[in-house]
């Protein structure tokens, strides 16, 4: 392994334990034979890796939670409607399959209704036309229809006036 490559790995994957076992073995072997890389490894460990490893975890002051809690309460009191909308949205998202089914059912219902409206109109028109046709037939039938009507003797037949 070349020094340049070894140094690159020493400062990254090797130092962080992210290197595979084979590469790790190669690097160790290289370090044993290369004074410069050996020195770099020591410096890295002593100056960077170990001090950072020993660092303590800091805890926030107790009053910070109270400040956060207060800010949340103030915000919620200011926008109760927004909060309600967000909660509702979350509920709908949570019940996704049921909500999707309900939406699909509603869409089908709307489509079916929209198809039904022109069909029922067509039926009404057809029935009106049939009725009118029957009536015209009735009028057109001389003996049974119009003539019979005239024979009632109301004296309003147009023929009676002009003929």
């Amino acid at each position: 392994m070349k020094c340049e490559r070894a140094k690159e790995l020493l400062m990254t994957d090797y130092a962080d334990g992210e290197l595979g076992k084979t590469y790790e073995k190669d690097i160790r072997q290289h370090i044993r034979n290369c004074k410069g890389c050996e020195e770099l490894e020591k410096a890295l460990k002593k100056t960077i890796i170990e001090p950072l490893k020993d660092s303590s975890r800091h805890t926030p002051p107790a009053y910070l939670w109270n400040n956060i809690k207060e800010s949340i309460n103030v915000k919620q009191a200011k926008n109760p409607i927004e909060d309600m909308i967000v909660n509702l949205g979350m509920l709908l998202r949570k019940r996704k399959p049921a909500f999707a089914f309900a939406t699909a059912a509603a869409i089908l219902l709307v489509v079916a209704t929209l198809i039904q409206i022109p069909m029922s109109r067509e039926k009404a028109v057809n029935s009106y036309l049939n009725e009118q046709g029957e009536f015209l037939n009735y009028l057109g039938n001389g003996e049974n229809g119009y003539a019979e009507f005239n024979s009632e003797g109301l004296g309003t037949g147009i023929e009676e006036i002009f003929l």
Binding site: M11, G36, E39, L40, I48
Partner: peptide, 23 residues
């Protein structure tokens, strides 16, 4: 990887001198 490498190079150079990396 690059950010970590550059950070460590910078630190090593600062505390031990550039020669440790360039040697």
């Amino acid at each position: 990887r690059t950010r970590l490498k550059r950070a460590r190079e910078k630190l090593i150079s600062h505390f031990h001198g550039k020669e440790v990396i360039c040697r």
